[in-house]
Amino acid sequence: MANYPVMGRISSYVALGDSFTEGLEDPADHGFRGWADRLAEHIEAGQPGLRYANLAVRGRLMDEVLAEQVPQAVAMRPDLVSLCAGGNDILRPGSGPAQVARSLEQGVRRLREAGAQVMLFTGFDLRQVPVMRMAHHKIEIYNLHIHDIARRHDAHLVDLWPMRVLRDLRAWNPDRLHLNSDGHRRVALAAAETLGLPVAEDWRQPYPDRRPPMWTDARYEDLRWAKNHLYPWISRRLHGRSSGDGVSPKRPGLTPLR
């Protein structure tokens, strides 16, 4: 984890991005919670009075985040903005990590020029997930660009790539694309740690040992995953649809967290 100076008081926080930041597969009474909501709770616990907005929408590509979400965040003039985008671009055939990174840097520059502290995230190490391992090298290259962008713009960086605990499938939803509640909990703890916020738990706590599944059982699970999750995802791509079509941000304005 990068060692950045502790932030001062955070009175306002805006989260930007796609399904990862929207909080998919971390269910709550109001829909989805997610690591960003959990991070806002960590901030509020030590600094009451936080105003929080979450503009992230599932399925959004980098250019959509820059066009739809970044201008809104700039207008809100928050103390802190988290920006995690590009994963949906990287997974698409023909996308180049360098091009996506250039777009990301444009967004970071606009946010920094508006006076906000910015927090970035590297991509996950998904080598254990069938199909996703084909994008492994592209994610590595994109991560190198993100490290450089964070250094150039003095941004906070949550480095998800080396977090070994997130390579355990017990941190993931059965779709293998989104974290489950415990995965979101751990990312929120890592983000709080990056900002220098005190937390009572450690995201590094390993999962209990368990016997690996038999080869045949593992292949059966792979086939079921492909049928229930991979094929619908591919179908949306082929038909030009997005999981975020018709979805609005869950917290479109800066409002008190409590």
Rank of each mutant, 00 (worst) to 15 (best):
T216H: 11
A200C: 10
W215Y: 06
L223G: 05
T194F: 01
A218Y: 05
V199E: 06
D209Y: 13
Y231F: 06
W225G: 05
D202E: 10
L197N: 08
T194M: 04
R219W: 08
L223Q: 04
L197A: 13
H229E: 06
L230F: 09
R204K: 08
Q205E: 15
D222K: 07
R210F: 05
Y207L: 13
T216P: 00
P206H: 11
P208H: 03
A226M: 07
D202K: 06
L195R: 03
R219K: 13
E201C: 03
L197V: 05
A190P: 08
L189F: 06
A226Q: 01
Y231E: 02
K227Y: 15
A218V: 04
R211K: 14
E193F: 02
K227W: 15
Y231S: 00
A192P: 04
R210Y: 11
E221I: 02
Q205D: 13
A226W: 02
Y207N: 10
R211L: 08
W225D: 06
A218Q: 14
Y220G: 03
P206N: 09
Y220C: 04
P206E: 09
H229Y: 15
D217I: 13
P198D: 14
G196M: 05
D209A: 15
Y207P: 11
P212Y: 04
R211T: 14
N228W: 01
W215F: 09
L230S: 02
T194W: 00
R219T: 05
R211F: 02
W203T: 00
M214I: 04
V199Q: 15
D222E: 11
L197H: 09
W215Q: 10
A190V: 01
A190E: 08
Q205K: 12
W215L: 15
K227E: 09
A192Q: 06
E201S: 13
A218H: 11
W225S: 05
E221C: 05
H229T: 00
A226P: 01
D202R: 12
L189P: 12
V199A: 13
E201K: 15
P213W: 13
Y207M: 12
N228A: 14
Y231I: 12
E221G: 10
D222R: 09
A200Q: 15
E201F: 09
P213N: 07
A226D: 00
H229A: 02
W215E: 10
R204T: 10
T216D: 13
